[in-house]
Amino acid sequence: MAGGETDGAAGPDGHRRFARHLDALAGVAPEDEAGLVASVLRDPDETMAQSAVGRHLDNRARALLTGGHLHGWVRAMTSAVGEREFLTGRLREWALLAALVREETWSAAEVTTASDWFQRRAVEMVTSPRVLALLAAEGGTRRVRVAAGRRRAVGSEGGAGDACGRPG
Score class of each variant (00 low, 15 high):
167 P>W: 10
79 S>Y: 07
25 L>E: 09
12 P>K: 12
95 A>F: 08
54 G>R: 03
105 T>R: 10
40 V>H: 13
72 G>F: 01
87 L>V: 03
142 R>Q: 13
167 P>R: 14
96 L>S: 03
132 L>N: 11
36 L>T: 04
38 A>T: 12
112 T>E: 10
146 V>D: 12
103 E>F: 00
101 V>Y: 05
73 W>A: 04
133 A>I: 00
117 W>R: 04
129 P>H: 12
21 H>M: 09
15 H>E: 15
124 E>R: 13
58 D>P: 04
143 R>H: 06
151 R>K: 13
62 R>D: 15
22 L>H: 08
141 T>G: 05
168 G>P: 03
14 G>T: 06
122 A>D: 03
102 R>F: 02
48 M>N: 15
104 E>V: 00
61 A>D: 03
9 A>Y: 12
19 A>D: 15
103 E>N: 13
155 G>F: 13
76 A>F: 02
122 A>K: 01
84 R>D: 04
58 D>T: 08
162 D>G: 15
11 G>A: 11
119 Q>D: 01
143 R>G: 12
21 H>R: 02
94 W>K: 02
23 D>A: 11
113 T>K: 11
54 G>N: 03
127 T>Q: 15
56 H>G: 03
62 R>W: 11
29 A>E: 13
144 V>I: 07
135 L>N: 08
98 A>L: 00
84 R>I: 12
107 S>Y: 11
74 V>I: 06
59 N>T: 10
151 R>G: 04
92 R>L: 09
158 G>Y: 08
103 E>S: 14
46 E>N: 07
125 M>L: 14
51 S>V: 08
159 G>N: 06
74 V>Y: 00
156 S>Y: 09
119 Q>W: 01
50 Q>P: 00
37 V>G: 01
136 A>H: 06
112 T>Y: 08
4 G>R: 11
109 A>K: 11
115 S>E: 01
24 A>K: 07
161 G>M: 00
22 L>N: 12
54 G>I: 03
97 L>M: 05
134 L>Q: 05
1 M>E: 14
10 A>Y: 14
29 A>I: 01
5 E>P: 05
133 A>Q: 11
51 S>P: 00
18 F>Y: 15
